[in-house]
């Protein structure tokens, strides 16, 4: 513990560098994961798409069960075969997007499917088109559940992002793995504690975001 503190005091710029790398990777991954997950989640709630929804959710679930090291390996193979850079930032971000999909997809899907039928009937009965129904009724009502999925995804992504250091993506995983290789306890602790603190900070931030995006009338209950 003391060692980790001394290292931090001596090389604050190193820790800042790893933290920034880590943040950058998860920021890019989360942004893309949200957009992708919410859009696909909404799409598969459409009429007559029940079968597709089952398939998509099943696939997302399977992806979650693939160990992260195996997934990184697979991605490296895949990227090499299409001539892209197989180590570093790109495979890391892709893997994180994949891991974030299940909670976002599933919650978006369930939230929209779970909207009270009386709400939908009221909207339809007043002459809303399918799109108006989605934008004015279903989505706002689904926000709390979608947000829960999002926070879930973020926690997963922050954790797995540490492992991405193995494929050269840097971030807070870098000191951990270096510490493991060289039996440097101080580096391991520094990296591990930093990941935890980062997760807490991001969660606090998401708390605030949740407050911003939840419709006023749904908060007071």
């Amino acid at each position: 513990m003391l060692g980790a503190w001394e290292y931090l005091v001596k090389h604050p710029e190193k820790l800042a560098g790893w933290a920034l790398e880590h943040l950058w990777i998860i920021l890019v991954a989360i942004t893309i994961a949200i957009i992708l997950g919410v859009i696909v989640g909404i799409y598969i709630t459409g009429r007559g798409k029940e079968h597709m929804a089952d398939t998509v959710l099943y696939l997302a679930e399977i992806m979650m069960t693939v160990p992260s090291l195996a997934l990184f390996g697979l991605l490296m193979l895949l990227l090499t075969s299409v001539g892209l850079k197989a180590i570093g930032f790109l495979p890391a971000v892709i893997a994180l997007i994949i891991y974030g999909q299940l909670p976002i997809l599933r919650n978006t899907y369930m939230a929209i499917r779970g909207v009270d039928p009386a709400m939908i009937e009221a909207g339809k009965g007043m002459g809303m088109t399918e799109r108006q129904l989605l934008v004015k009724v279903k989505l706002p009502l689904a926000v709390p559940v979608i947000m829960a999925g999002l926070r879930n995804a973020i926690v997963i992504i922050i954790g797995i992002a540490a492992i991405a250091a193995l494929i050269g993506a840097g971030g807070l995983g870098a000191p951990i793995f270096r510490g493991l290789r060289n039996a440097r306890m101080d580096l391991i602790i520094l990296g591990g504690v930093s990941v935890s603190i980062l997760a807490l900070l991001v969660d606090a931030f998401m708390n605030q975001v949740e407050r911003w995006v939840t419709p006023e009338g749904l908060k007071r209950r």
């Binding site: 709400m119 009937e121 009221a122 909207g123 009502l141 749904l218």
Partner: peptide, 11 residues
């Protein structure tokens, strides 16, 4: 309708 169906997210 009986269940009223007021939208809770709207004033």
């Amino acid at each position: 309708i009986q269940d009223i169906g007021l939208f809770p997210h709207m004033t």
